[in-house]
Nucleic acid binder design. Structure first.
Length: 297
DNA sequence: TTCCAGGGGTAGA
DNA sequence: TCTACCCATGGA
């Protein structure tokens, strides 16, 4: 089976970075802890569905290896596509130097990130990340995982290399499913309509989500685009900004409130604005500051 | 039963 | 801009 090599920045703690974000637990991703390997079922542009296994080896610490199954003939173009998707998912091209420099002045955060953490896992498409983010709103994490699993199982293309697993459905596949299957099979509650509407907008050409991944927009402009998606409020928009590489806003949710209230306000309940202001001094790096401030506490 | 979870839309002020 | 109120789902 073909194995591709992808160069990674230094320092880079692959195993920690992949698991620092909950996305690794959402279909069609998986983590094999005994082999420290990220797996993912991926639908390629030619329609074939492959299983990717992404890992590092002690002999090549400056690379991640990507094994593709099945080992059919992969054209150079498909190899380039897979490399680009892996680079995007692992955020290998995001410049974190400013964050690391700032983090050196914070004992706890530096102790967590100094081995090369901060590149939180994201999905190959923004469509997938928006759907998953909507599935984290007003629900428990276990239910988020179950909803995403049902969506993938119901609508994604099966993976020949591992028939029990499927790829994340395309906007076309989601739009074609219709409200009845969402209500009866996928069961995202009131989020059904949000996900269906987004899929319809994308397939109709009314919303070019993927163009946002490479758009040269300010944080405020990007936030405006994200907020225009039905079902995306401030929390979801700030989470998506982080996934897109904009770290200047914190995502205030129940987890954020619990941590900041406990650590900075002695458990006294204060308005969200005050909770968010705790990380103002981090400027463009507020999201990562909070994320790793709350890590290992 | 009731509450509520890694919230958001809407109407009304 | 802020505040009530409602919202599907399913675990505690």
């Amino acid at each position: 089976m073909p194995t591709l090599s992808v160069t990674v920045p230094q320092p880079y703690d692959f195993a920690a970075a992949v698991r620092d974000h909950g996305w690794v637990a959402l279909a069609p991703c998986g983590w094999e802890s005994d082999q420290a390997t990220l797996t993912r079922v991926e639908r390629l542009s030619d329609g074939q569905v492959v299983l990717l296994a992404i890992y590092t080896t002690p002999a090549t610490p400056d690379q991640v290896q990507v094994t593709v199954t099945p080992d059919g003939a992969l054209s150079p173009a498909l190899c380039a596509e897979i490399r680009a998707k892996v680079r995007w998912m692992l955020k290998l091209d995001v410049d974190l130097d400013g964050f690391y420099q700032r983090a050196r002045r914070h004992d706890h955060i530096w102790s967590v990130v100094q081995t090369g953490r901060g590149r939180l896992l994201r999905s190959p498409t923004l469509f997938e990340d928006v759907v998953k983010t909507i599935c984290t709103t007003n629900i428990t994490w276990s239910q988020t995982k179950a909803m995403v699993q049902r969506l993938v199982d119901a609508l994604g293309d099966p993976c020949p290399a591992e028939p029990t697993r499927r790829a994340f459905p395309t906007p076309e596949q989601v739009a074609a499913a219709g409200p009845a299957r969402f209500a009866q099979e996928i069961r995202m509650g009131y989020r059904n309509d949000y996900v269906l509407q987004l899929a319809r907008e994308v397939t109709a050409g009314a919303r070019d989500l993927e163009a946002l991944r490479t758009a040269d927009l300010s944080l405020a402009e990007m936030k405006r685009e994200l907020r225009s998606i039905k079902g995306v409020g401030n929390y979801a928009a700030h989470t998506l900004l982080m996934l897109l590489g904009y770290y200047g806003e914190v995502a205030v949710d129940s987890e954020y409130r619990a941590f900041v209230t406990q650590h900075y306000f002695d458990g006294v309940v204060v308005p969200d604005k005050e909770l968010a202001a705790i990380y103002d001094e981090w400027g463009d790096w507020k999201y990562l500051a909070n994320w790793f401030d709350a890590t290992d506490r």
